[in-house]
Design a protein around this nucleic acid. Structure first.
Length: 506
RNA sequence: GGCGGAUUAGUGUAGUGGCCUAGCACGGAGCUCUCUCACGGCUCAGACUCGGGUUCGAUUCCCGGAUCCGCUACCA
């Protein structure tokens, strides 16, 4: 392993199902890592014991497995830089908290949440920082013995970083360039809380990234404001020279209206915002997932990849391999991308028609079974070949093929009005004789010619004959080539349907 | 409110100080193919947030406004 091997991480919190935005973040990390022959790690950031949701971790692992995104190291994979769950790294963090404390770069604070809440109410724009910390109850204002006594007494405390004022902190972002923030607007963030003996995100994140030799931090834009704090933390801990490069990704926005994409949008507009279906363990509420909604994983990956990035060419369809080759952080856009699920549907359609008829038939099988029908594979493949390009999702195939399995019981009003003529019954009655004379229905072209010749000889209107015929078979003026339909239905069924329609349609 | 980020058609985006009559895709409209419905093909409508600069020239560079997004927790 070379010294400067690219190492990136995806570090979700197990607070519920993984949001589709998180999926994209991980995808970009994956593409970046693979492009440079590096590693992608999965780290679970469960430092918020309050919000832990059982099953979330398994969900995350399963989701990426489905999408074809693999981890080289981390939870579920293992590796030499573990453990990869922050809740299992308590002792590690304590050591570095102590280091900061000893160096005078952090301090103990005993202010209760209520007291702080009070201050926020009293003072506009209150924040715990160089201007206000001397009014707080902390190791900067309390005598050393008192601090010691309180700690030994088991009083709850937090450790806060001591931010020095009047300093311009620079973050060199790979997407946005240099971002400068003055330390005056930063507050003395809580780094560690004695209540659960766990660090907060900021500290744990920096310690882990350093220990796990992370070279590039690619994360959502919501982290940009705290990036200066992270830079300072690297400096305080003495790791400035190995600090990773940062890249803050644009956010995914609602399809319409204001704000970032949320679960509610999916419910409202009828598209999933999660990769897999999720059942809330507390309420039992079900959130739909891309997988269960019939999306193909490669379509989801392709769609997501292009939401905030493009290779600069007109190409839109990419395999994972192509994405890996073409991906570059420099070409990630800076502004938030509205989530347009219709484009996602289109991608799915494209991937669906790219699949072989055989494969699509295989995928359709379970849906057919659900409807109560069995179908021989070769026959289903034939059916699929006729209608595949009409649908965007596997499950929509039923709507396009149901008449192959169940004879129409009613006939579409509009189709009848437009296509069923007074002379239709007479024509069809005669057509039945012609059809009866055909021995092999699989000779599609031949049979078509035969019927066409017959129509011509009778000087009938071709449209009227064919459309009337179609309605009796399908129940409406829709569907693929009619001679393929009767090939699939067979002579007996074809004639039965025509006969029946002639009795029913008045 | 404070701080930061962003701003090309409805959406995702390309692009550039003059080559821009601003390209592509989704979506929309129409035409076409056809026994029908789709698919496909063709065509059309539709955008550089506004105001100041800089410049011979700005969509492109600078400043300001507006709008949107994010952060502002003992959440990540």
């Amino acid at each position: 392993m070379s010294e400067n091997k690219v190492r990136v991480r995806f570090a979700p919190s197990p607070t519920g199902p993984l949001h589709i935005g998180g999926v994209r973040t991980c995808l970009y990390n994956y593409l970046f890592a693979k492009k440079y022959g590096g590693d992608l790690l999965l780290r679970i950031e469960d430092t918020d014991s309050q919000r832990f949701v059982p099953g979330a971790e398994e969900y995350i692992i399963e989701a990426f497995k489905w999408l074809g995104i693999t981890f080289d190291e981390g939870v579920g994979v293992g590796g030499e830089n573990g453990p990869y769950r922050q809740s299992e790294r308590r002792d590690i963090y304590k050591k570095y908290v102590q280091q900061l404390l000893d160096a005078g770069l952090a301090y103990y604070a005993f202010d209760t949440p209520e007291e702080l809440e009070e201050k926020r109410k009293e003072i506009a724009n209150f924040q715990y920082d160089s201007r206000t910390r001397m009014q707080g109850v902390n190791s900067l204002t309390l005598p050393a013995e008192e601090v010691k006594r309180r700690i030994e007494n088991g009083d709850k405390y937090v450790v806060r970083i001591k931010i020095e004022p009047d300093e311009d902190v620079e973050v060199d972002d790979m997407v946005r360039g240099k971002v400068v923030i003055n330390s005056n607007v930063l507050d003395d963030k809580v780094l560690y809380k004695s209540a659960d003996e766990l660090p907060t995100y900021h500290l744990a994140n920096i310690v882990d990234d350093h220990l796990m030799k992370i070279t590039h931090v690619i994360r959502g834009e919501e982290w940009l404001p705290s990036a200066p704090l992270h830079v300072l933390l690297y400096r305080y801990l003495g790791w400035a020279d190995t600090m990773p490069r940062f890249a803050h990704l644009p956010l995914l926005l609602k399809p319409e209206g204001n704000g970032k994409l949320s679960k509610r949008d999916g419910d409202r507009l009828g598209f999933p915002v999660f990769p897999l279906q999720w059942t809330d363990p507390a309420t039992g509420a079900i959130s739909s997932g891309y997988r269960e909604s019939g999306y193909l994983p490669e379509a989801v990956v392709n769609f997501l990849a292009l939401l905030g990035w493009n290779p600069g060419t007109d190409q839109e369809m990419f395999s994972m391999e192509e994405l890996i080759q073409l991906f570059s952080i420099e070409r990630v856009s800076k502004s938030g991308a509205r989530f347009n699920y219709e484009k996602g549907t289109w991608f799915n359609h494209e991937y669906l028609i790219k699949k072989s008829d055989d494969e699509v038939a295989e995928l359709f099988m379970p849906f057919l079974k659900e409807k109560g029908y069995e179908c021989e594979k070769s026959r289903l493949t034939y059916i699929v070949s006729l209608v595949k390009e009409r649908v965007s999702f596997i499950k929509d195939l039923w709507e396009q093929t149901s008449y192959f399995f169940e004879a129409p019981t009613e006939y579409d009003e509009k189709s009848l009005k437009k296509r069923w003529k007074p002379e239709s019954p007479q024509m069809l009655t005669e057509l039945m004789e012609v059809l009866d004379g055909i021995a092999d229905y699989s000779k599609v072209a031949e049979n078509e010619q035969l019927v066409l010749d017959w129509v011509a000889s009778k000087e009938y209107n071709l449209g009227t004959v064919m459309n009337s015929f179609r309605i009796t078979l399908v129940g409406a003026a829709k569907g693929p080539h009619i001679f393929n339909i009767i090939d699939i239905l067979g002579k007996e069924e074809t004639l039965a349907r025509v006969k029946r329609a002639l009795e029913v349609i008045k």
